[in-house]
Amino acid sequence: MAHFTLAVSEGTFRRSFDLLKRNLRFSKSDQASFGIFVAGYDVRAHLEGGTLDLRADNTISVRELDIRWDRLRFTLGINIPEICVGGGCINMPWPIPDICLPRVCVFSGNPDISISPDLAAFVAQEVSFTGRVVARYFDASVPPPLPDLCAPIRIEPLPDHNQWHIHIDPQTIDVDLFDFPDIVGNLIENTLSNAVRAIIPGGFVRDIILAIIGGIADFIRFLLDIPDEIDEWLSDLFNVSFGLLDFIGTLVLDFFSTCNPIYRIDDPFELLPASNGLIPVRIPLRNLSVRVNDAEMVAEVDIGG
């Protein structure tokens, strides 16, 4: 039987979780080349809202944490290919081989266009997870691992003395897929169209070039190889190609499970501070274990020698 038992009510645990959650802010940027175009992102976000529930089966359920995008800048750079006319082969009577006409390019130079809209206002996502609470011992004499993966998301610096750390340890994390609405597809298409239009000369030359390329909208779809709607293509880009969902899932996992404990208990624990010339009274803590039920979190610990 443990020497000490400590209980934290569900309400208090929620407030602690809320304080911890507010500090989860992250930013990331990257880009990838897809041949004729380069796509990238520059994002910054934090968590808000959500509900926490302690459950009788020793698990914690966190639902519908809102991912608030402070910035969700999407960058798309396209290398406009040459636009050529003519070409094709002439069927010649036997035994003369077919003759193929050379093509003449009316628009060359492979100019680049680039757009960078901020889509933060158009995206709403939530993250939910279930997990448990675990106790880990922090030994200040052991040097931190290198590289220190927690450094970018650690809220408080590592202590200079030994501690027991109680972590929320997510087991399964669900992140909503990026699902951009139609309006985003229209926004990107319009922005791209304007960028393409800007590099095409005006007047009848523009009419002719547009006729050759079959209109800017079709031209853009051809360049990006988009068979369907741009918003669906964009969602796939964020969900699959950029790997952002995996990043968010890993971040939530590392933030709570490894890098930031919800509670810290010094070891040895100071029962009475130094006073009147007497040294403080400290007791070493051993075998800390934690669990939850539907009403509270319970920690049990032995006093060691």
Partner: peptide, 14 residues
């Protein structure tokens, strides 16, 4: 991706 200027083959349109 290196940025280049667009080049129009003007005689084609004249």
């Amino acid at each position: 991706m290196t940025t280049q200027k667009a080049s129009l083959n003007r005689p084609v349109f004249k």
